[in-house]
């Protein structure tokens, strides 16, 4: 009798493993959440003009350093239009949520660097949020 009891416990334990394992796999691997840029600590804090200068000096080196990283970028707002803000005519920021930003204001934006835009000569950030 005790023997069968043990076997049942083992089966239940194995089943629990499979269920939790499957659940974790489903949530954390197959359907894991996307990066939450707003919740990440910035890898670099830079001035908008300095960031642009680094890209213009050497796109390769700047790409290796900044691409896909969360950055905190400081500067003066030069343009505001719907969900986009341009800082120091150097960095383009696409915001995710609501923002209260006005031209000539000095701000710090946290966002993900997606690269250098040659057409406008700007560095682009997406998933931006205001940090101050």
């Amino acid at each position: 009798m005790a023997k069968y009891g043990n076997r049942r416990v083992v089966i239940v334990v194995i089943l629990l493993f499979i269920i939790t394992g499957g659940y974790l796999l489903y949530n954390n691997y197959l359907y894991k959440d996307a990066r939450n840029i707003a919740g990440e600590q910035p890898a670099f804090t830079v001035n908008a003009t300095q960031l642009l200068a680094e890209y213009q000096e050497g796109t390769g080196a700047a790409t290796a350093k900044y691409l896909n990283k969360t950055l905190a970028v400081q500067g003066k707002v030069t343009s505001v239009n719907d969900s986009l803000v341009i800082i120091d005519s150097a960095v383009f920021c696409a915001f995710t949520g609501i923002k209260e930003v006005y031209v000539d204001e000095t701000i710090t934006v946290k966002g993900r660097c997606i690269g250098y835009d040659e057409i406008f000569g700007e560095v682009k950030l997406d998933q931006c949020t205001l940090t101050n």
Binding site: A34, L67, I119, F120, K124, D126
Partner: peptide, 30 residues
């Protein structure tokens, strides 16, 4: 990708488009 840059020179019809690849967003993170 909702932040694609493009420029058109209307006199000659020349178009330049630039899409940053990291700007492509999927519904599924994986």
């Amino acid at each position: 990708n909702k932040s694609v840059s493009a420029a058109l020179d209307a006199s000659g019809g020349e178009v330049a488009v630039l899409a940053l690849m990291k700007g492509f967003r999927f519904k599924v993170a994986l």
